[in-house]
Design a protein around this nucleic acid. Structure first.
Length: 215
DNA sequence: ATCCCGAGGG
DNA sequence: CCCTCTGGAT
């Protein structure tokens, strides 16, 4: 997949995190909010959110309905507000108000899974991690395991290990980000645009996907 | 109708 | 493995 990565680096020269944040806590919160939404919507609520609740101690004491009202535009506001309350309470009680720096501790927080944890580790602490979301799963599945557009996807943890095995740690965060951008731009779930795909030449799934994407 | 840079719960 | 959780955009 090294050739593919090289090409994606040209297509997407910069793979910076699009979320607005000033410290690890803000990134953690913004990343939890970003599940199943766009960064644009997350960025639209974070200024007010962090002005009102600048740190875990403040957010842990938030009124649930007030918190929900602020984050409402990102969707899933009820569950996410509950996660933010539990998460910030846990940060103040168990981690001295600091965001922990290990996968185990991060994923023990409510609302934080492996993908979110790896995003935080990579972007806030510069600790190498490979975030695997639905885009990464789909794109690497097609590139490496020749999964067609309807087959079940490979195990995310398997993908994580495979990638981390053949790429140096400093590439993990950026590779993941570029696979996500590519998945969103052309390697769609239903109708992948193989005709204009920069990876079509080496992609083993290109002919499978080129056909009519019915169903 | 279907898709969003997911996670938790059954 | 399945479902749910939100709402806006396309």
């Amino acid at each position: 997949m090294h050739e593919e990565y090289r090409i994606l680096c040209q297509v997407f020269p910069e793979a910076v995190c699009a979320l607005h944040f000033h410290n690890p806590f803000e990134l953690l919160v913004a990343t939890v909010l970003s599940a199943q939404t766009t960064d644009k919507r997350v960025n639209s609520v974070t200024p007010e959110l962090f002005e009102r609740y600048p740190d875990p101690a403040a957010m842990a004491q938030a009124q649930p309905n007030e918190l929900e009202a602020i984050i409402h535009p990102v969707g899933f506001y009820h569950a996410k507000a509950r996660h933010l309350l539990g998460l910030s309470l846990m940060l103040t009680e168990d981690y001295g108000g600091k965001v922990p720096r290990t996968m185990e501790e991060l994923t023990s927080l409510p609302g934080v899974g492996r993908k979110t944890a790896n995003v935080v580790l990579g972007n806030a602490f510069n600790i190498p991690g490979f975030p695997v979301d639905t885009h990464v799963t789909r794109v690497t599945g097609r590139l490496r395991w020749r999964t067609d557009w309807r087959s079940t996807h490979p195990d995310p943890v398997k993908i994580e290990h495979e990638i981390c095995d053949c790429f140096p740690p400093e590439d993990w965060t950026n590779l993941s980000h570029r696979l996500i951008l590519h998945g969103r731009a052309t390697c769609h779930a239903r109708k992948p645009d193989c005709l204009h795909c920069p990876l079509a030449e080496t992609c083993p799934s290109a002919e499978l996907l080129a056909g009519p994407a019915s169903r």
